[in-house]
Design a protein around this nucleic acid. Structure first.
Lengths: 170, 170
DNA sequence: TATTGTTATACTCTATAACTATA
DNA sequence: TATAGTTATAGAGTATAACAATA
C-alpha cells in the first residue's frame, strides 16, 4: 500500500487540489449566471454553444462527445432544448439511424445574449489575477491537457459494455 | 449588445474552454474511480478528505465551505457519511448551536486507501503530458486563481437571502 | 434578531436496461 | 451482429422554505 512509485509529489497534489477547487468555484458561479440569465444549466449551455458555433448540424453522438456521458442523458437534455425552440431535431439523409441536431435562430440568439455575461464572470473569477503571460501559458498547458485527456479513454457517450461490478467489497 | 469593452480575447476564450473541458473530463474520471474504489461521490470524498487532513473537528459551516453550497445539502451528505461510520457528529461545547464533525479512524483509513488510486488517475489524465516546469507553474497560477476566487463572492454555504425571481421570462 | 443546523419536499439530472430501427 | 437513438424507471443529489434552538 505504501511506497508507490506512482505517488505524486506534494506540490503536484497541491496543483491538483488548486485546479479542482478553482474549477469548482468557477463552475458554480458560471452556473448561477447561466441559470439567472438564460435559464440554462451548464450542460445545456455547452450543448447549445457547440451547436451555435457549428455550420452544419451534428448527430446526437457528435453532440454528446465530451459533454454528456450517457445517451439517455443527451436525449433528455435535447428534449428540453427542443421544447423551448432552441434546437431542432430531424432524421439524417445519410444514415437513417442518426438524428441531426441544429441550433435555431432563437438558440443562437440566446447564446449571443448570454455570452457577454458569461465572459464577464470568467474575467472576474479567472483572468483578473493573472498576467497576460500567465493566461497565454495557461491556455497552452490546458490545451495540451485537454487533447491528452480526449485521446486517453473511451471518451464518447456509450460504453455499451463494461464490467461495472457492484462494488467488489475489496 | 456588441462592442463590449469587457469582451475576452479569442485566446482567452480558448483558454477558458480548454480549462473547463479538461476539468470536466478529469472530474468525470475521478468520479468513476471514487465510486468504484470507495463508493463515494466526489463531494463525499472532498468532505471526508478535508476532515481526515484536519486535527480537530470542524463545524458544519466550516466543513461546507467551498465544497457544498446549501446547508441542507451538507446535512444530507454528512448523514450518509455518518451512517457508514466514516464521520461522527456531536454537539459543540463552545457554541451549542453548532455541530462538530470529525473523521473516524475508518474514515481516515478509507481516504488513505483511495488516495493512491486517486493520484494515479490524476497522473494519467493531468500530469503525464506536462513537463515539471509546466506543473510548477500551473500550480502557482491555479493557486493564485483559487485564492482570488475564494476571496471574491460570498463563497460559503448560506445566502440566506437573495431575490431568486422565478425566471423573469425576459 | 441573527445564526447554526435539521427536516420536509419538490425538482433536476443521470444512468441502466429494454426496445426499435437501420447499417 | 453492431450502431444510433429513444423510452421507462429508479436513484442520487440539490435547493427552498419552514422550523427549532442557541447567541
Amino acid at each position: 500500500m505504501t511506497g508507490d512509485p506512482e505517488a505524486l509529489e506534494p506540490h503536484e497534489l497541491a496543483t491538483l487540489f488548486a485546479l479542482t477547487e478553482a474549477a469548482n468555484l468557477l463552475q458554480h458561479q458560471v452556473e448561477q449566471h447561466l441559470r439567472a440569465e438564460g435559464d440554462l444549466s451548464y450542460v445545456q449551455f455547452q450543448l447549445l454553444a457547440r451547436l451555435a458555433s457549428t455550420d452544419g448540424p451534428l448527430t446526437m453522438t457528435q453532440l454528446a462527445d465530451g459533454v454528456v456521458y450517457s445517451r439517455s442523458g443527451l436525449t433528455y437534455q435535447a428534449g428540453l432544448l427542443e421544447q423551448r425552440g432552441l434546437i431542432t431535431r430531424g432524421p439524417s439523409p445519410d444514415d437513417e439511424r442518426a438524428t441531426l441536431v441544429a441550433a435555431t435562430d432563437e438558440g443562437r440568439a440566446l447564446v449571443e445574449a448570454i455570452l457577454p455575461g458569461h465572459v464577464q464572470v470568467a474575467r472576474r473569477m479567472l483572468f483578473d489575477p493573472l498576467s497576460a503571460d500567465d493566461v497565454r501559458r495557461l491556455g497552452d498547458v490546458m490545451g495540451r491537457v485537454r487533447d491528452h485527456m480526449r485521446a486517453q479513454p473511451p471518451r464518447s457517450a456509450a460504453p455499451r459494455r463494461r464490467a461495472a461490478r457492484p462494488a467488489p467489497e475489496r
